[in-house]
């Protein structure tokens, strides 16, 4: 049972790949293995199985990095800082992935790579925050000081995220589900009528989506576990020398 999680993850990833890519998209789905058609999206709707989990992990990784940062500030245990920085490194990776997948998708659906839609702005800001976090870390040489100040910066930078995630999409016109949009008939600004945000996803799509979310999360925790253990070994090795 030692490798249970790995086999489980393997199974889930296979399921997501098959379930996400194979079922045909038809206008009136009859069997369970057909996805409903969304006008204007067609096959491009499949991005939800891969793009949304990466974006979710970006945020989750940031929260974990901040949580361990706060724990470091409380008990000054350097291993907490290692957990924090490895979560942030993975978060940065997933942030880049979410930006790239979203941007390529936007090129084919919305017409250009970047639109400054509120969600795009917020992922860009998250990218900047991660970048600034690592820039700050590389500018501090003393281990203890580096751990302390980067933890504090992660807290302060976190305070701005509610503005980007919850407030701006509701104040500004955007393309992602859930933000304001211009009504094509009257020209008035109105709340989004997009089916995705109200979670009117078809039942079978929802199953694949949640399996994908779980699979990505397990993958993240596996990678995170490996990377902070590597950091710890390197640190202990250095101390012995």
């Amino acid at each position: 049972m030692k490798n249970f999680w790995k086999y489980f993850l393997f199974l889930l990833v296979i399921l997501v790949l098959l379930g996400g890519l194979i079922p045909p998209i038809v206008e009136n789905p009859k069997s369970f293995f057909e996805f409903p058609l969304i006008r204007g999206l067609e096959d491009k709707a499949r991005i939800i199985f891969f793009h949304v989990p990466t974006a979710w992990l970006t945020v989750l990784a940031y929260l974990i990095a901040m949580y361990y940062g706060i724990r470091y500030l409380k008990n000054k245990n350097i291993y907490d800082d290692m957990k924090s920085v490895s979560a942030a490194a993975l978060g940065f990776l997933f942030c880049i992935l979410a930006t790239l997948t979203g941007s390529v998708w936007a090129k084919f659906t919305w017409g250009s790579f970047w639109h400054w839609d509120p969600r795009e702005t917020s992922i860009f800001i998250l990218l900047l925050i991660y970048g600034a976090y690592f820039a700050l870390r590389s500018a501090l040489e003393v281990e203890e000081k580096r751990a302390r100040l980067s933890a504090i910066y992660s807290i302060i930078a976190f305070l701005t995220t509610p503005f980007f995630i919850f407030i701006m999409p509701r104040l500004m016109i955007g393309l992602h589900p859930g933000s304001l949009e211009i009504d094509p008939v009257t020209g008035q600004v109105k709340a989004s009528a997009n089916p995705v945000i109200k979670f009117e996803m078809a039942a079978n799509m929802r199953v694949v989506f949640f399996i994908s979310l779980i699979a990505f999360t397990i993958l993240f925790f596996w990678l995170w576990n490996l990377s902070h253990r590597i950091l710890k070994l390197e640190y202990e090795n250095q101390k012995e020398i």
């Binding site: 900047l128 600034a132 820039a135 700050l136 500018a139 501090l140 100040l149 910066y153 930078a157 701005t160």
Partner: peptide, 16 residues
Amino acid sequence: KANVKGTLYPVLAFPV
């Protein structure tokens, strides 16, 4: 407290 103060400042402050 950091080593490169000048360049880092706008980088850290901008997202905030």
